[in-house]
Design a protein around this nucleic acid. Structure first.
Length: 259
DNA sequence: ATGGTCGCTTAGCGA
């Protein structure tokens, strides 16, 4: 089974691509970020027409996340749309349990610049996420934490590490938060499968970033031990990033074998 | 060369 994450940068614009991608890859579960539309505005009927259902946590203009899942999986349980005990008007979280697998889909705060209020918000957000995931890890043996983390974990995940040194997405503080999540017993699936390839997931629209392969690996799929034993494959789908009118992010998908 | 391009909403912000 395939599980995937994709920052679509407006679901309104990207819905045709999402539908084409679902039809091509038939993932069991697809986490989306940056819907930029309200829950009510999402065209769930189009998703249903392909045999999928959707859990949506949207808002107007900014943020917004969804979990699209194969209807054959049946109804998910324990749906969560907020980090517990963390007051946040921004819609950045959707989690649900599908059979034995707990899936948490996040759109981590970008943070703008290291001296900004948004960066302070990012660090508070990551601390709250860690506390929550610690609890979830205790409760669920098979857990997926995926999404747009807005963190490049190491210099190997950056096309020009020197130019990004100490900059937002690449600070040691953010990388520390990412490593704290791994310390909860999670494995970076793409790094596990591909230890050395850069595997960028985001390229700036500006200055022909994709054509020149000036990218960062900031979208991740983290899996618990109970799923690492089932991990067969992990891959960045650069083809979708090359489509007409693309998102600035590529999908990341992992393949799990049978229990 | 210190910008560039998208998307949302309509001049400026967020990424």
């Amino acid at each position: 089974m395939i599980i995937a994450t994709w920052n679509v940068n407006s679901l309104n614009v990207r819905m045709p691509q999402v539908l084409a991608w679902l039809a091509e890859w038939r993932p069991a579960i697809l986490g989306l970020q940056e819907l930029k539309q309200t829950t009510e505005a999402v065209d769930v009927e189009a998703i249903r027409s392909l045999g999928y259902e959707a859990l949506v946590n949207g808002q107007k203009t900014y943020n917004g996340v969804a979990l699209i899942y194969d209807a054959a999986l049946g109804a998910p349980t324990d749906v969560v749309t907020d980090i517990p005990d963390f007051d946040d008007p921004q819609r950045r979280v959707i989690a649900a349990t599908f059979g034995s697998i707990r899936v948490i889909n996040v759109y981590v705060v970008n943070g703008e610049a290291i001296n900004s209020d948004k960066f302070a918000y990012k660090l508070r957000w990551l601390a709250a996420l860690h506390a929550w995931i610690k609890q979830e890890r205790a409760e669920y043996d098979q857990l997926v934490l995926m999404g747009d983390f807005n963190i490049a974990p190491t210099d190997a995940d950056v096309y020009d590490p020197e130019s990004f040194r100490g900059q937002v997405l690449c600070t040691e503080t953010e990388r520390g938060h990412f490593n704290e999540l791994l310390s909860l017993g999670l494995t970076d699936a793409l790094r596990y499968i591909e230890p050395t390839e850069p595997n960028y997931t985001w390229w700036d629209y500006r200055a022909a970033g994709f054509r020149r392969d000036r990218g960062l690996r900031i979208d991740h799929v983290l899996i618990s031990e109970g799923l690492r034993s089932r991990l067969l494959h992990a891959e960045v789908d650069r083809v979708a990033r090359g489509w007409e009118r693309p998102s600035d992010h590529a999908p990341v998908r992992i393949t799990l074998g049978a229990d």
